[in-house]
């Protein structure tokens, strides 16, 4: 039952939002935003940006983490971790606007900024997960004649999987929230509604945008949690 708490809450919140919105008389500005076509389009953009970010982070941060646990150079490790830390510590707005100034506005820039911003959880969890693998386990794998790649793919990564997946889950939630600022550089998403609602002083628009972002974050977190349970190797 606990498993289904999140989806139930999300559905309830969306239901309340819908009832509240239908009880309002919307003016022409609000009508331009609060219609199914517009909301679906913004949500699609938002989800697209988030999923692309998470996929890129997984593809980039996990191998980087593996490489960092393999390098003997402390300098390399410290440098990469330092950059990842800066990426996360710098406010996402700063990263995205800086990139837009240096490069261009639009989808690609937003994507790059979001990847930088949500890189660290996956990177550090990959490293932690691999470092946590018991030395005896690693040594017996080697002693049984596994090649270094076999040790990594058959032993270390499966054992580290739960920790890596937890990092990915954090990173997904990060990027859902951070994706709202894509609107500042004309990359769409639900941020459009929030910023429009604020600048035009249309609270129903603002609140709809904010609630939708929160619901997406909760839902993706929930899906990632289910995936984590399913993908976690049995026995761990």
């Amino acid at each position: 039952m606990k498993r289904f708490t999140t989806p139930i809450v999300v559905v309830l919140v969306l239901g309340v939002l819908l009832i509240w919105l239908s009880s309002l008389t919307l003016d022409s500005i609000e009508q331009r935003t609060l219609n199914v076509g517009y909301i679906v389009e913004r949500t699609r953009e938002h989800l697209g940006l988030t999923i692309a970010t998470s996929a890129l982070v997984a593809v980039l941060a996990i191998p980087t983490g593996i490489a960092l646990t393999r390098t003997r150079s402390r300098l390399v490790r410290a440098t990469v971790l330092g950059i990842a830390n800066i990426g996360q510590a710098t406010p996402a707005v700063g990263v995205i606007i800086l990139l837009a100034i240096l490069w261009q506005t639009g989808y690609s820039t937003a994507l790059v900024a979001l990847v930088i911003y949500s890189f660290l959880p996956v990177l550090s969890n990959t490293m932690t997960g691999l470092q946590q693998v018991d030395e005896g386990v690693r040594e017996s794998a080697k002693g049984m004649g596994m090649t270094p790649n076999q040790v990594l793919l058959r032993i270390e990564l499966p054992i580290a999987a739960p920790v890596i997946l937890a990092g990915l889950r954090t990173s997904i939630v990060f990027s859902v929230g951070a994706a709202t600022i894509a609107t500042f550089i004309n990359a769409g998403g639900l941020g459009d509604m929030i910023v429009n609602g604020l600048t035009l002083q249309r609270f129903p628009v603002l609140i709809t945008g904010a609630v939708l972002v929160a619901c997406i974050a909760l839902s993706l977190d929930w899906i990632a949690g289910v995936a984590e349970d399913l993908l976690r190797p049995r026995g761990i």
Binding site: V137, R138, S140, A141, I155
Partner: peptide, 8 residues
């Protein structure tokens, strides 16, 4: 000594 069985 640590046996090192693969937990997964």
């Amino acid at each position: 000594q640590q046996i090192g069985l693969f937990p997964h």
